[in-house]
Design a protein around this nucleic acid. Structure first.
Ligand SMILES: [Zn+2]
Ligand SMILES: [Zn+2]
Ligand SMILES: [Zn+2]
Ligand SMILES: [Zn+2]
Lengths: 143, 143
DNA sequence: AAAAACCCTGTAGTGACTTCAGAGTCAATA
DNA sequence: TATTGACTCTGAAGTCACTACAGGGTTTTT
């Protein structure tokens, strides 16, 4: 199959496929007489595997390691575990900061009623106050 | 104050400070006789503001817009609202995909008991199966 | 025969930095 | 005084995972 067909079959962009080849994630395929890349089913499977790992947000370097495990089935499984654990840890860290971020932004958004100038805007006041390490007046509990 | 002191005061790396100057986020400061950058308190405040916005994961382009609002307090506040809303929307999209990711990775991790080879590893099997669009046997409900 | 659609290589751009090379300046020490 | 070490300067290149050209060649369709 040609590169466009592989693109259709997997949903991976043509440029991305060539990029993966250059980066050594998929092996260089044979070429037809006119120089076009000629892929087989092994390429399709490998590319699907890569995209599935990417959907789990694994960096390409880790996907390479993962492909190494696929190629060497006698290796110790503990390494695979560690790889997934690291990825999970990274995702959890980011998830935590995303949650905090959402909270901060929602609170910030609540500072603005509509229809006034920037000088009167609670959002801007809040951001400036926060940058100065001060708490906004609205956050001090009423006695 | 010199760039190293500003770095100490804000926790922003020296190279990052110079980068912000190059990108036009902070104005070029005066220089001392030897050519060293000489910052004042206005720079410190502006840099703190920028970092606070960055902590909210705003892109530099939006921070520039935000700084524009600070500089023009007579502008309409609605633009500020829209900017925050857009940012909040982006964060919520990413938060959602992060949650899904965490779930997928946890499930994947549960496929591996310890102490076997890669060939026997449920994680690898699962990834390969998923790449082929098949459901793993363990996911079919028992009758 | 002409046009559209496909393919090739190689380079450069994205965002928000980080790192490096190579050089100059300043305070404190041997 | 010489020299170490800490600080600063500029400009270029590297990071990640693509994405978008530019400038050609080939195949298929009209
Ligand atoms: Zn407002
Ligand atoms: Zn407040
Ligand atoms: Zn296992
Ligand atoms: Zn399963």
């Amino acid at each position: 199959m040609r590169i466009g067909e592989l693109c259709q079959a997997t949903g991976v962009g043509i440029e991305t496929i060539r990029y993966y080849e250059k980066e050594g994630l998929i092996p260089a395929p044979a070429r037809t007489d006119n120089g076009y890349r000629n892929y087989g089913s092994a390429h399709l499977e490998r590319l699907s595997f890569i995209r599935h790992c990417r959907a789990l947000d694994m960096p390409l370097a880790e996907i390479k390691r993962m492909l190494g495990f696929v190629a060497h089935p006698d290796a110790d499984c503990g390494d695979i575990n560690r790889l997934i654990d690291e990825q999970l840890a990274r995702v959890r860290v980011r998830l935590k900061s995303m949650r905090a971020l959402e909270k901060q932004l929602s609170q910030l958004r609540a500072h603005c009623g509509a229809g006034h100038t920037a000088a009167e805007c609670g959002i801007l006041h809040e951001l400036v106050a926060a940058a100065q390490g001060e708490a906004c007046a609205c956050h001090t509990k009423a006695p």
